[in-house]
């Protein structure tokens, strides 16, 4: 059992944290665009971080559950509704058999994530459940999910511990102007000093030519020394390529493994989520940081994840207070008795 897609959304795919280890063979990593939102979605329903989630873009899907499970919705604000009533984001919620979850147009952000305690039943291909549409592997037969399709769950899990504590403050992706931090290199020596200065002082706007492969930005020309072409080499996540037209392209989850344009810098890992959640027209100001700073921020994010984990695993106040607990249980019993009475009538 699982769920039926009554509407597909614009680009709904199954993703986990990506297919690593095969880039040397030419396979893109794929995986979620916004790792932080996907990791939090999994935490909220008590899944491992790398568990497969549904990722949707700008317009979300409408899903009818054909079996009960626990879900969490994170990422951009898609104004989720269950059976026509608003449902909270960044919170573990029950989805019962027959419930209809509607995800609309992203009011803020670009990418949304939906996690399931019952876990998606799609095959692991080369160590990952991520969809790679170009290679037609992973996820839902290597393709985006279409209207009328069904995706199954692989386990039955309708109970998680500390259910009531599993809620956190939603992240805010609404800023019209963002500072995104960058480590210089590997080909910063292909650029004029003036070009590097321009890059770090001017604002660059996110254009509509942006997808899972990369985001193109528009802004003042970044000058090379002599040409933008290099002998093709490997492209890391967040690499900022600048072709001869002088405008940055930030390489993302579905980036090709190698490329022949000079890369001025790399967006630091902790800033990728905020960057990918930026709508067309968002002004990006790039700020230079050292590798050491970037890695310190990375470790702080790890600590932040630990703190979230702790918080959502802590029994809530009502459970700690034994008397309150007793009262709650009492209510449950009386309710059950009533129900039993009803069935006798």
């Amino acid at each position: 059992m699982g769920m039926l897609f009554q509407k597909s959304g614009l680009l709904t795919t199954v993703q986990d944290l990506g297919r690593t280890g095969y880039q040397k063979d030419g396979f893109s990593v794929s995986g979620v665009m916004d790792r932080r939102s996907a990791i939090i979605a999994n935490m909220l329903v008590d899944n491992p971080e790398n568990e497969a989630v549904l990722e949707f873009m700008l317009v979300g899907p409408t899903i009818k559950f054909t079996s009960s499970t626990i879900i969490a919705i994170t990422g951009g604000n898609f104004e989720p509704m269950i059976n026509g009533k608003p449902a909270p984001m960044y919170t573990a919620i029950y989805a019962n058999r027959g419930d209809v979850l509607e995800l609309k147009f992203a009011k803020t952000g670009i990418w949304g994530y939906l996690s399931f305690s019952s876990k998606l039943d799609v095959p692991v291909v080369m160590g990952s459940r991520s969809t790679n549409i170009k290679c037609k592997i992973g996820g839902n037969h290597g393709q985006k999910i279409e209207k009328g399709e069904q995706v199954w769950f692989r386990i039955k899990k309708r109970y998680i511990t500390s259910f009531l504590s599993r809620t956190i403050e939603p992240e805010d992706f609404s800023q019209k102007k963002k500072t995104i931090r960058v480590v210089l290199g590997p080909q910063d020596d292909y650029f004029q000093k003036k070009g590097i200065e321009t890059f770090f002082s001017e604002d660059y706007l996110i254009t509509e030519e942006s997808d899972r492969m990369g985001y193109r930005l528009d802004g003042p020309y970044v000058a090379h020394k002599d040409g933008a072409d290099i002998i093709s080499d490997g492209i890391p996540l967040g690499a900022i390529q600048i072709p001869s037209h002088g405008k940055p392209i930030v390489m993302l989850a579905d980036r090709q493994t190698t490329g022949g344009y000079a890369k001025i810098g790399t967006v630091i890992s902790v800033d990728i989520p905020a960057f990918v959640q930026s709508k067309e027209g968002t002004a990006i100001h790039f700020e230079k940081v050292s590798v050491e700073t970037a890695q310190r921020l990375y470790m702080e994010q790890e600590k932040d994840y630990d703190a979230i984990r702790k918080r959502i695993h802590r029994p809530c106040k009502e459970v700690i207070e034994p008397r309150l607990t007793a009262k709650r249980i009492e209510k449950l019993y009386t309710k059950q008795e009533l129900q039993e009475d009803e069935t006798w009538i």
Binding site: V183, L184, G185, P186, Q187, D233, G234, P236, L237, G238, A239, K263, G265, T266, V267, I268, S269, V291, A294, Q295, L297, Y298
Partner: peptide
């Protein structure tokens, strides 16, 4: 060469 906080060349 540095390539961000999670890669080197």
């Amino acid at each position: 060469l540095t390539a961000g906080d999670a890669a080197v060349v």
